[in-house]
């Protein structure tokens, strides 16, 4: 599906999507084609879904004209405060 179609189906709300086709524009991921998984009720659910989403799934708000997501390199090293590294 193209993003404008999703926007028409579910105006002004959060949706759960799967990335099907995208390209890089600098450090931004521009998503061209998506599969619409389902609509999301509110910001709280959208946050939980975003962090629970696996593989190529993500959430987005249909008020946005295009899906452009900044991608950064970042080591996320989880540690405990004490104990050997």
């Amino acid at each position: 599906m193209q993003w404008p179609e999703v926007r028409e189906l579910y105006p002004n709300q959060w949706v759960l999507l799967e990335e099907l086709k995208s390209h890089y524009n600098g450090s931004n991921v521009c998503v061209d084609e998506v599969a619409l998984i389902r609509a999301i009720l509110d910001a709280k659910e959208a946050t939980e879904e975003l962090f629970a989403a696996k593989d190529r799934r993500f959430v987005y708000h249909t008020s946005k004209e295009a899906i452009v997501i900044r991608e950064i390199q970042k080591p996320m090293i989880r540690r405990r405060a004490t104990g050997a590294n």
Binding site: A43, L50, M76
Partner: peptide, 22 residues
């Protein structure tokens, strides 16, 4: 604290693939 409409979220690429942050 939740991701709201006007907040930006990013993908962080590192060990284990891609993870979101807002």
């Amino acid at each position: 604290i939740y991701l709201e409409e006007n907040d930006e979220f990013v993908f962080m690429r590192g060990i284990g693939g891609r993870e979101p942050a807002f």
